[in-house]
Each structure stands twice: as C-alpha cells, then as structure tokens.
Amino acid sequence: MSATTATVGGGIARKVGSLHRERRWALVTAYISLVFSAIIMLAPPFYMLITSLKTSAEIADQKGNPWIVRNPTLMNYWELMTDKLFQGFFINSVIVTVIVVVLTMVISVLAAFALARMRFFGSQVLATGVFLTYLVPDTLLFIPLYQIVGGLGLLNSIWGLVLVYPTLTVPFCTWIMIGYFASIPKELDEAALIDGANWMQMLTKIFIPVALPGIIAATIFAFTVSWAAFVYPTAFVTTPDQMPLTIGVVSQLVRGDTFAWGQIMAGALLAALPPVIVYAFLMDYYIAGLTAGATKG
C-alpha cells in the first residue's frame, strides 16, 4: 500500500543503472501521450469557447484560422443571460435538480442504512435489485414512462421530470451508500446501542457524519446526473417554458436554417458550467463516487 507513494511512477525500474534509460523512455512516452491526449480532450470545449466569443460576422467569414478569435466579444453571453427563455431554462434546471438531489439523498441514505445494518426479510434481494435497477438505462423505459407521466397529466411540466429523475439517481446513490455504511466498524453501532441510542440517532449521530465523504460523492453524482439528463426531458417536455437547460439549448437555440453558432456555443458552455465548477472544486469526491460503483458496495 505505502509502496505506491514511495515508488514514484509505478516502481517499474527498480534495478539501478541499466534500467535508467528504459525508465527515462517510459517517462518521455508518458508525457508525449498525455500532452497529445490532453489536446484532443480539451479541443472541443476550447473551440466552443472560441466560437462563443466571436461575432456572427466573424464566424461566417470562411477565410483564416477558425481556432483563433480576432475581435473577442461577450455579446453572445450577454444576449443569452438577458433572454427570458434562457433564464427560464436555467431556473427550471435548478428547481428540478435541487428537488431531485434532496429527494434522492433522503431516499437513498435511509434505504442504504437499513440495507447495510438492519438485516430484514428480503434485504439481500432488495440490495441486488437496487444494483440491477442501476444497470437499467433510461432509454429502455422512456416510452412506458411517457405513457405513465402522460396519464398523470405531467407531460410538459417540470414536475413530471421531478417524478422520473429519481430512477436515474436513487439506485446508484443507494448502492454506493450501502458500501460506505457497510465499511463503518460495527463497534461504533454497539457503543451507540449501549449508550441507549435508537436507530434514528445512530443514523444521524454516527453514520451520516462518518460516511460524509460518501454522502458528498453521492450528492455530486445525483447533481451531475439530474443536470445532464437528456432523454426524459426530450421525451416529456415540448413547451419551451418548461424545458431544463440541456434540451432547451439543443432544441431552442438550434432553429431554422441559419444557426447562431456563437450563441449556441455560449449557451452550451453556460449550461455545462455548474457541473464543471462542482468538479473543479470537489474533484476527489467526484472521482471517489465514480470509482465507488465497482470498487465499493
């Protein structure tokens, strides 16, 4: 375990001298690959940024390098931010995401606690079922859900989205919370039981504080997934004033034959900003949540 930090670079070349050159080559190859792939990975967002800073005239001008901007302008951003429709998309996304994240965390923390610590009839089956539900993609069930949401009169409404988004978030969050809770030593529960704590106190006083990193990771996951959800809003919402950002930008900014590319790119970047900001500040939790699905639980 500690060796991973001690042997910088994977501990491949331990033998002195003769392997020194092999080691240096490995390092050079590594850096070349990383620089090359970083350029490719970052090119699309970079190009989106460049385009969003251009005027329509500059975009239409086919001469010269499209990868640089000559007369940068914030007009595209300004027009979007003062646009009532775009503001509406943003507000819809925020409302749906906040409610879904709160619902998800309440549902999954309660359920994960019960499944990880209070063995009861069917708990095994339920835990497996939760994991299988996580593997059901949204595109498999969106047509029956369309009928169900329609039957409830919630098509073209953000409340229909609030109803169905938990199918995307709850299974995975429950699953990783089971993993985090199961890794808490049993001595802690026993100590709490001896002190006369009931189950609810045990959850709020011990499990939630101790498993806080897991809770943060699950919250980030729920946030990113609800923010980026695309299939459900595309299917269930066709009136612009009820659209969240993803489908709003894709369907409303892209219209007609003349595309306002600068504005489309500005809209896409603004819409992508919240998850990117969360990622930038909470990268370690983000990655912990990402890898937890297979390594914990």
């Binding site: 967002p45 989106m48 993803t246 489309i264 819409a271 992508a272």
Partner: peptide, 8 residues
C-alpha cells in the same frame, strides 16, 4: 453533459 459537448 454529453448533449452539450456533442453540440460542440
């Protein structure tokens, strides 16, 4: 979000 980067 993939829908947005795909626009790019």
């Amino acid at each position: 979000p993939p829908a947005l980067s795909t626009l790019g």
